[in-house]
Structures are given as C-alpha cells and as structure tokens.
Design a protein around this nucleic acid. Structure first.
Lengths: 154, 154
DNA sequence: GTCCTCATGTCAGGACTTTGACATGAGGAA
DNA sequence: TTCCTCATGTCAAAGTCCTGACATGAGGAC
C-alpha cells in the first residue's frame, strides 16, 4: 500500500477530528487533566500516583519494572522515584543485595497518602464510566488493549 | 458518596490493570510511541505534527486556538510554534493587525513536510483500526468522546 | 469618556519525558 | 576460567507540558 500520490486516510474522514488518534489523544488529555486536578489537593502528581499504586500492588519491584508498568522509560521513572523518596513516601536500599535491582517499598506515609488520594482518582474513573453505555464497557477495554498491542506495546 | 473507609473501585477490579484509566493511558502511550517513531524519519515530533495538521485544516488561526485544538496550554503551544517558526515551517506576523491574536500560516516547506509525514502517521492509524472489529469503530469513537466530555474537556 | 471583562501573548519556574550513552552485576557458552 | 549477553541503574542534554503571573488590546456596561 501507499504507492499513490496523496496518502489515503485510514477511513473516510472529513477532517482530522474524525481520526482515532485524535479522539484517543483527546480522551487521554481529558483524563490527565482531571487526574491532575483531583490529585493536586493530595499533593501528588499523576506519575507519582501511578507509581504508588503499582508499588502497592507489587511491593519490592525494581525501578525498571516500575517504569515498564507505568509505560515510561527507566530514566523518567528514576526521576519520579527520587522525588517520592525525598518526600518520604517510598524507601529504597542504597545497595543491591543480589543483582543491580534496587527493590522499592511504600512507607507507612506513602500508603496513607495513596489511600487518601484513591477516592479522588476513583471518582474520576466513575465519571468516565458513567458517561458510556454500561454494555459497551468490556468492548471498550478490549479494544483499547487491542490497539495498544497492535502498536507494538506488548 | 465516599463516606466509608476504603474507597470503592469504580467497578470490580482485581488489580489496577482492570481500570479504564489504566487502559486508556496504555493505549495513548502506545500511540505516542508509534507516532514518535514514525515521525522521526521525517524530522518531526508529535506536537509539531499535530500543529501542522491543524494548521493545514484551519489556516490563519491564533496560537491560543492552536493550543486548544491540540489539547495543550497556550504556553506549550507557543514553544512548539517557536520551533516550527525557526525551522521555517510556519510563518507568523510580528505584530497583530486587529487584536492581539497572531495568525499562523503554513509555509510551502511546512506543507510539503506535513504531506510527506502524513503517510507514516496514517499507517499507524491503520494498524490501530485493523486491530479492532470494524463494527465497533463508531462506538469506540463515540465512547472516547463521551468520556472526554464527561471529564470537563468540552 | 471610564471601568470591567475577556482573550491573547509572554515570561518564569518546576515537573515529566525522551534519546543516547555508560558502568555494573548476573548468568550462560565456550 | 574467560567471553558474551542481558537487565539494571545512572548521567547528560533536549524537548514537552504544566501552574502562576503579568501586560496588552477589544468590546461592552456605565
């Protein structure tokens, strides 16, 4: 495909607002904004919250694993982790026991902050879910996954 | 809502990977990564491409309108715009004719670069669309919009 | 006329993210 | 043993994006 002159749009689209990428970007931007606002009163940023949530679910994982779980690079994750460490929300040994991986753990304060912020984040999710027909939720989740997989994220 | 102890998840979820926000974030991250890679060989970043595409559709719009159309703040848009201007892909008058708005236009080179990059971006969209059942595409687009609207992006 | 409100553009500071590169430690192959 | 490969952590530089703040111009209310 693509031997012609003008590139053909993926499907009939009068303007760019019809594109899947545009809609996906818009929804993601709206989510990001709503979460930013919801988390501000708890003194957390979105990357920080994502980090704490994943850490609560999988205590002791390495920074690299944390990065993969939040869809960012190791470098980005390290910056966020350093901030959380300075804030006393996570702990990390200075030296590795076995390999090079440094296991990260939530502190008591980190867990408390996470639990306090969770309600605000869940409210945002609730607003999203309530906006669509309940019968379509599973299909929506499935399609989002399929698209992510197709783009080589998996 | 929310008078209880533990916050209730928006829907039954064994772990955070079940949440809509998580899936949305994952799909958006995959899209961003794929577009980054596709645009790299054309010497454009995703924000730059978004800017050029919107400019092609609505020539002469202001920086603030451009920002709203690409879901970022005026400040972010201004930075990208400055880069595009220095690269000779867009033009902008130094002073405003009427109000304060400075109309932005694509240069001949800007249009050429956009058209060259479009094929690569459309291929990414095609990969996404082909990954889901065709009958669900309209519902997916609709649901993404509903969620964005519900989060106050409107 | 003045005052108020709104939109636009801009500056400053901080947080996040990326690519590229490098050093270290573990484990397997020869 | 040595060599190779892989994963991890880290540094550096650049770009993106945000909040907060400020000045300017247009249009309406008074």
């Amino acid at each position: 495909m693509g031997e012609g002159g003008r590139p053909e749009p993926p499907h009939e689209a009068g303007d760019i607002t019809e594109h899947v990428g545009y809609r996906l970007k818009r929804a993601a931007a709206a989510l990001r904004g709503a979460m930013d606002q919801a988390l501000r009163e708890h003194g957390l940023t979105v990357p920080q919250y994502s980090c704490l949530e994943l850490l609560d679910e999988r205590p002791g994982i390495s920074g690299a694993e944390l990065a993969r779980g939040t869809f960012v690079t190791r470098q980005s994750s390290a910056v966020v982790l350093r901030g959380l460490q300075e804030a006393g929300l996570v702990t990390r040994p200075a030296t590795a026991e076995h390999g090079r991986a440094l296991p990260v753990h939530l502190t008591r304060e980190g867990l408390a902050r996470l639990e306090a912020a969770r309600g605000a984040v869940y409210a945002v999710e609730r607003r999203m879910i309530d906006a669509i027909p309940p019968r379509r939720l599973d299909a929506l989740l499935s399609d989002l996954d399929r698209m992510a997989d197709a783009l080589g994220d998996g």
